[in-house]
Computed example of a mutant assay.
Amino acid sequence: MSLGNSTVRRVTAVTAATAVMALGIAACGGTTKNSVAKSTPTAGNTASANPNAATRKGLTIAYLPKQVNNPYFTTSDNGGKKAVEALGEKYKEVGTSSGTDTAGQVSYVNSLTQQRVSAIAVSAQDPGALCTGLNQARKSGIKVVTYDSDTNPGCRDVAISQASSVDLGRTEVQLMAQQIGDKGQIAILSAAQTATNQNTWIGYMKDELKKPQYKNVKLVKIAYGNDDAQQSFQQTQGLLQQYPNLKGIISPTTVGIKAAAQYLSGSKYKGKVKLTGLGQPNDMRSYVANGTVQAFELWDPAKLGALAGYAAIALASGQISGAPGQTFTAGDMGKYTIGANSVVVLGKPTVFNKSNIANFHF
């Protein structure tokens, strides 16, 4: 997919260079570069599987996002709904209206276990808080797939990663550094402090910033907007008041980057303080057009949700157990291979800018 200009091609080239290392690393949270080697195999995923087994009928696949009515998860879960129903299975979605209500997520896991659903696709608000409930579900024969944000590896059968953590963390720093000329103060506007995917990406951002070419780029603060539009807007305002010489903000959350763009667009900082991160084209289109944002990146969240659904059905049908090296077919998305730590990577992130954003509608 063409990314449209030399700046983006430079980012893509560097991203490609990390691909070999990225294959074995989870993109969404439950693992980091240090924990991959230390984590134990996912419990139960070494069972035998029959890749030629027929898809079971009468399955119920339940989606538990971090937050219902969040545009990002609405898009991803609708992608899951389409995939699940295309195979003739039943889809349902449950969840809390807050992106930080971990106790609420635990309650929904327990409820779904009592309902004896076939599989749970969950985006975890916290890496460990759901483990007791999820493992109880698995003991009851329910398959567990994480998507967007992982649990600890021992608490699920398969994790669906948006992209490699290495790619996402490093390329966001690269995008920002190019826009500020490799010099100046920057801040990160994250979601919740416990969000596993956010913390993993931020870890790779910090690691990227250690390279010599970023010696004049200083990360001054990590702020948390809790995936709430109003809080993220206020955190953006606070960053600029606290650091009047701030040159850029990286927001690896679709809610955060949109709120930050909204603030910058109506302020004296428009075009002066650079903004990048993870956003949806439909949310960011006007801010790219008016010059508030030059470039940002993301994957297709609908495909992420769909891949979670296909994996859940393959698990519930006995076609895969979650063991590394196993493969399954995800409809017209093609064949996917389960990698280290039972992680399946959706693909490379796409960089969006003025030259290509009109080609995307999600």
Rank of each mutant, 00 (worst) to 15 (best):
224 Y>I: 01
23 L>M: 13
118 S>W: 03
342 S>Q: 05
95 G>D: 05
143 K>W: 00
28 C>F: 13
109 V>Q: 03
16 A>C: 07
320 I>G: 01
330 A>C: 10
4 G>M: 05
101 D>H: 06
263 Y>C: 06
49 A>V: 09
110 N>W: 01
284 M>A: 06
164 S>T: 08
5 N>I: 04
335 K>T: 15
114 Q>N: 15
86 A>L: 11
78 N>C: 02
145 V>I: 14
154 G>D: 13
114 Q>S: 15
328 F>H: 08
37 A>R: 11
136 Q>S: 15
342 S>G: 08
216 N>D: 15
167 D>S: 15
140 S>M: 11
137 A>S: 06
189 L>Q: 00
254 T>D: 09
193 Q>A: 14
222 I>W: 02
274 K>Y: 04
253 T>L: 12
321 S>A: 07
165 S>R: 04
345 V>A: 13
192 A>C: 02
19 A>T: 11
49 A>E: 04
262 Q>P: 00
213 Q>E: 15
142 I>E: 02
106 V>S: 09
319 Q>M: 09
134 L>D: 05
185 Q>K: 12
47 A>Q: 12
214 Y>D: 05
335 K>M: 11
101 D>C: 04
314 A>M: 08
89 E>A: 12
252 P>V: 08
263 Y>R: 02
153 P>L: 09
22 A>N: 12
221 K>E: 14
108 Y>E: 10
56 R>Y: 01
138 R>G: 01
105 Q>T: 00
163 A>K: 02
25 I>V: 15
3 L>C: 14
225 G>N: 04
109 V>N: 01
321 S>Y: 00
232 S>W: 02
268 K>T: 13
246 L>T: 10
70 N>S: 15
236 T>M: 07
237 Q>A: 10
211 K>G: 06
45 N>H: 06
172 E>M: 15
61 I>C: 06
103 A>R: 08
53 A>Q: 05
54 A>C: 01
316 A>W: 00
12 T>E: 14
52 N>R: 10
205 M>Q: 13
324 P>V: 08
134 L>W: 02
32 T>K: 09
242 Q>E: 14
104 G>S: 02
4 G>K: 02
138 R>V: 00
353 N>Q: 08
228 D>P: 07
291 G>K: 10
132 T>L: 11
171 T>W: 03
231 Q>G: 05
311 A>M: 08
280 Q>V: 09
264 L>A: 10
327 T>L: 07
131 C>D: 01
242 Q>S: 15
57 K>P: 01
251 S>C: 05
177 A>Y: 07
15 T>H: 00
233 F>Y: 14
